[in-house]
Nucleic acid binder design. Structure first.
Lengths: 107, 107
DNA sequence: AAGATACTTAAGCGTATGCTTCACCAACCG
DNA sequence: CGGTTGGTGAAGCATACGCTTAAGTATCTT
């Protein structure tokens, strides 16, 4: 998942797919690399669940699948929230001690 | 950034750091690898802005920096929103057409 | 049917990544 | 003081990654 988003070219492909479905060669056009390379990137994105695609005739049309994006976003925000809550508690604890100055709480 | 989060060991370190600051060897303990390897991972996380650390005496204490996490989260949610807005518009468009014509559509 | 188009697959290659070992320094501890 | 603890840095190595070329298949187009 994060692995898939780690590559700038792949992120650019995701970016493009945000604006709507695209064929493989459409995805390839702005990227300075072979169609072959693009297909390989695509299969990484697809394996990560970020993209789904179907072939009609000889053209494969790709579209974003936001569920994976949602999962990644969730992972991050969960951790961020965890840390920030901890941070807030610490702040509160310090403020408390600053005022009353008594029993020591253990972490 | 995503590169840094791409490695499972690094994610585990981030996970640990969510629960509070830790020294390098504390971070290393649950991971089955050398201290050396852990330090290398740490420097990746630090270069990505995910972690900050300071050395006191001979122990380096590491803490999470949520700003980078926030940025990653923002990137994802921005793109997801972009796509989902598009998706909704498409749905509206289809619903609109649904009223006006009724020919056999392909599944 | 001939040719172009849109991929697809496999092989190969250079570089980056993740890891280990080894040598080393700087604090703390008795 | 010497020894242990906590971390650092460089070198080396195996594997993974990103890419290319080349050869092939299936689908339009004319």
């Amino acid at each position: 998942m994060f692995q898939a988003l780690a590559d700038p070219n792949r992120r650019q492909m995701v970016q493009r797919l945000c604006e709507g479905p695209a064929s493989v060669s459409e995805l390839a056009r702005p990227l300075e690399m072979t169609l072959s390379a693009v297909v390989q990137h695509l299969s990484v994105l697809e394996a990560a669940g970020l993209v789904r695609s179907q072939k009609i005739g000889r053209v494969r049309t790709c579209r974003l699948d936001t569920q994976a994006l949602r999962a990644a976003e969730g992972w991050i925000s969960e951790r961020r929230a965890l840390w920030e809550r901890r941070f807030d508690r610490l702040g509160a604890l310090l403020a408390e001690q600053d005022g009353t100055l008594e029993t020591g709480e253990k972490a």
